[in-house]
Design a protein around this nucleic acid. Structure first.
Length: 787
RNA sequence: UGGGGCGUCGUCAAGUGGUAAGACACGGGAUUUUGAUUCCCGCAUGCGAAGGUUCGAAUCCUUCCGCCCCAACCA
């Protein structure tokens, strides 16, 4: 793996999990995996996942497996396997596989997976279902209605085994039978309603050929492949969150015990102005809307590579956008920034005129008309030269080309370029003044006549004496070489083509514009696959396949930042065509029931349990609890019992309710109250201690946490931990002085008005006293000391 | 009450009860023979909303709101 991969990758929740696991010794090394299905080319979204998985392995000193998830022979092809392996390697990563070049394949595990399926059948955890595809779907129920059992669900293991073996032997046609996990048709998670594990597919597999006619489904194959390879952290995207339960089921059912792999999900990359789904990308390729998978406009790795983006930029981008669980859309400007930053450091500078306008220097000396002149210029600007002192000669003659955009007959006042009567500097040349404009009969400017100031010639002393506002690029007309320059822009006109009914209708017709450009002759030395900055324009890349001797083809990678374009856009009329509003694609009907109001829900609950209703009323009426408090305390009978028992020890309903609602409720979310070591008596004792001022609230919370963990007696815990409240002004003042003395800069900030720092000081003093100080007193003392 | 997730600046994103990181974008300035690069400076009295707990809440509790995912023999 390359050393240039950023070591300072920012933290994310998955790193935190792994760090924790390693610290606790749950695993002793990290094994991740990148598991693409070889049914398409990798794109920048995959790159995010690749950087994550391989990056994690690298930073934790583990390994990452590249595994082809090839369980569906109808979609997968060897061409894709090769492109995927190639792309991963190009991105700068090495995988652990059978060897350095061969990846893992899920298809290598078909026999083992099959054997485990037989095991599940024998354990009664899987059965062969023989209903039609339609029937199966209907029997699955809906989001709100449970599914129904298939009549074949009760087949014996022996029957199932026989049928399954015959499925494998090819005795049945596709769709006749399917092997299903026997889980729970009523599960709220649709994936757990007896999901198919194996289906019959009489298709030729790209690696196993015709050896199999049954193939495992994703959920079955994936988790078990992970387990087989000793994967520790199986990282996938958010849409698989629902699959995690099934992932765990499969591993448990086959009999894997800890430490075994676990699945974690992060948000996949969504980028502005592009599409990322393989289906849509495939459509663009198949319909010839782009020039193949490696069209430089495609977000594929192959496309980016051909465009001239380097792996360094992609890795920097992956690092920049981070890893989280929020569905988000990344501004494509971030990618462009990373590309520029990378290319800026390595690209030699040259001049090229994409849209030439002829310029004749009328003052050009006669003796140089034939022979011409030339100027030496560095390939790199001084701030980047960094020891690179190479230069090239730029021919210069009487006739030049400049960029058509760099001339305006009637310019706005902040135009720094060439216009009638005005001066501009030629990059590495001299200052010229526009004397005359020649137009054709349509009024189009076809030639400029200028005069030059020989004293401003580059490299001569005093050449920069004359100050002009602009410098423009140019090439000598006689010496210039012809080149094809492919100017690429974003593929879509709208920010979210995915949200359109017909995403193809938003294709940007100007995403590829081919220019016949004039370039400086030194560029003839450039072979295919080289980067260059055309000054004032952008970064370009000689096309890896089309650029040859005599045929010069440059791809535009990305433009330079263009402040002028921004200024222009700001002053011009804002484009009258508003971005079309994205229409949401029609979705399947929402079958969720109407939302019930809170009161209705309560009514329903209490109607079902009048005794609970009575307790709720009693708490409200007899104990003076608020409606909310009473409702929460009467959530279940167990809780209500607990509250009543606590009240029997310490009869202050407000105080008890407060602690129940704000502290206890949190603990009983995941755990049953009955399993908590905390007793009602201990709880009441704690509330009393705090309520009577013997314990600060902060210390009270510490004791509460202890009680929840270990149980015990609150007073004993207070004594053991030495938490009794510090009420003594002297002790608090001493602590406060200490804190103030050691935070002089913060004190200064506070005194100059940043009073929100009070919390900081109080916090420091509280920490210094181990949370025992009376907080209100601390606050008062600190405030008066800070003045 | 089907279940599972997610809401912090225009965009990503840290932050897990004690000073709302950072980056991109944006705005201003300096340097500049690329309107580039580089360098400074500015940019969330506030974390979906409202209540509550606390000396102190983005963080804990409650309720509400919004968005995403799941009913392929795809992955």
């Amino acid at each position: 793996m390359s050393d240039t991969i950023s070591a300072a990758t920012s933290s994310n929740f998955i790193r935190d999990i792994i760090t924790d696991h390693l610290e606790r010794g749950r695993y002793d090394k990290v094994v991740t995996r990148f598991p693409p299905e070889p049914n398409g080319y990798l794109h920048i979204g995959h790159a995010k996942s690749i950087c994550l998985n391989f990056g994690l392995a690298k930073t934790f000193g583990g390994v990452c497996h590249l595994r082809m998830d090839d369980t569906n022979p109808t979609k997968e092809e060897t061409e894709y396997v090769e492109s995927i392996a190639n792309d991963v390697r190009w991105l700068g990563f090495e995988w652990k596989g059978q060897d350095a070049t061969t990846p893992f394949y899920a298809s290598d595990y078909f026999q083992q997976l099959y054997d485990w399926a037989e095991l599940l059948i024998q354990k009664g955890k899987a059965y062969v279902d023989s209903v039609s595809r339609d029937e199966l779907r209907k029997n699955r129920g809906t989001l709100t209605e449970p599914g129904r059992e298939s009549p074949f669900r009760s087949r014996t293991p022996d029957e199932n085994l026989d049928l399954f073996r015959r499925m494998k032997a090819g005795e049945f046609e596709e769709g006749e039978h399917v092997l299903r996990a026997k889980i729970d048709l009523a599960s709220p998670n649709m994936l757990m309603r007896d999901p198919p594990l194996y289906r019959i597919l009489k298709a030729h597999h790209h690696r196993t050929g015709d050896a199999w006619c049954i193939y495992p489904m994703y959920d079955y194959a994936h988790g078990l492949s992970d387990a087989l390879e000793g994967i520790t952290h199986s990282i996938c995207t958010l849409e698989f969150e629902n699959n995690r339960e099934l992932y765990d089921w499969c591993l448990d059912a086959v009999g894997f015990s800890e430490p075994r792999p676990h699945q974690y999900e992060f948000a996949r990359l969504v980028l502005d102005y592009t599409v990322m789904s393989k289906r849509k990308l495939l459509l663009l390729v198949k319909d010839g809307l782009v020039d193949g998978w490696d069209d430089p406009r495609m977000p594929t790795i192959a496309g980016l590579r051909r465009r001239g983006v380097r792996p360094e930029a992609i890795r920097a981008f992956a690092d920049m956008i981070g890893v989280a669980k929020t569905n988000s859309t990344v501004d494509i400007g971030k990618l462009e920034y990373c590309i520029r930053e990378d290319l800026n450091a390595i690209s030699p500078r040259a001049m090229a005129v994409l849209d030439p306008l002829e310029v004749v220097i009328d003052t050009w000396p006669d003796d140089l008309v034939e022979s011409g002149d030339s100027i030496e210029a560095p390939w790199f600007p001084p701030e980047l030269a960094d020891g690179r002192t190479t230069t090239r000669r730029i021919p210069l003659g009487k006739t030049l080309y400049i960029e058509r955009d760099d001339f305006m007959e009637d310019p706005p006042k902040d135009f720094h370029r060439l216009s009638p009567g005005q001066e501009v500097r030629l990059r590495y040349g001299f200052v010229i003044r526009c004397d005359r404009v020649v137009k054709d009969e349509d009024g189009k400017v076809i030639r400029l006549h200028v005069s030059h100031d020989a004293e401003t010639r580059h490299g001569t002393t005093g050449s920069d004496k004359k100050k002009v506002k602009g410098t423009i690029h140019w090439v000598d007309a006689q010496a210039a070489l012809d080149a094809e320059v492919r100017v690429y822009d974003r593929l879509f006109k709208v920010a979210a083509p995915d949200r359109e009914d017909d995403f193809l209708s938003t294709l940007n017709p100007e995403s590829k514009v081919v220019m016949q450009a004039k370039i400086e002759p030194a560029l003839s030395a450039f072979g295919a696959g080289q980067h260059v900055q055309f000054e004032r324009q952008g970064f370009f890349f000689t096309d890896p396949s089309d650029h040859k001797d005599g045929v010069r083809v440059f791809n535009k990678v990305v433009g330079l930042r263009d402040t002028w374009a921004k200024v222009k856009a700001r002053t011009e009329v804002p484009s009258a065509v508003p971005e079309p509003v994205a229409k949401k694609a029609a979705k399947a009907p929402d079958t969720r029931p109407e939302k019930l109001s809170r009161a209705e829900i309560r009514e329903r609950r209490f109607a079902a349990d009048p005794a609970l209703a009575a307790r709720f009323e009693a708490m409200k009426r007899d104990l003076g609890m608020s409606e909310d408090e009473a409702e929460l305390c009467a959530e279940t009978h167990a809780l209500a019992d607990f509250v009543e028992a606590a009240l029997a020890v310490y009869a202050k309903p407000q105080a008890i309710a407060k602690w129940v609602v704000n502290e206890l409720l949190r603990e009983v979310k995941e755990r049953d109250l009955e399993t908590l070591p905390l007793t009602a008596v201990a709880f009441a004792g704690l509330v009393k201690l705090v309520d009577e001022g013997q314990l600060s609230t902060t210390a009270g919370k510490t004791v509460f946490a202890e009680l929840v963990q270990q149980g015990g007696d609150p007073e004993a815990i207070v004594a053991r931990l030495g938490l009794a409240q510090v009420d003594d002004d002297g002790a608090i003042e001493a602590a406060a002085d200490q804190v103030i003395a050691s935070n002089a800069d913060q004190v200064a900030k506070y005194r100059s008005g940043k009073t929100q720092l009070l919390g900081f000081f109080v916090g420091q003093v509280m920490k210094a006293t181990g949370g025992r100080a009376r907080p209100d007193k601390v606050s008062d003392i600190v405030k008066s000391k800070l003045g």
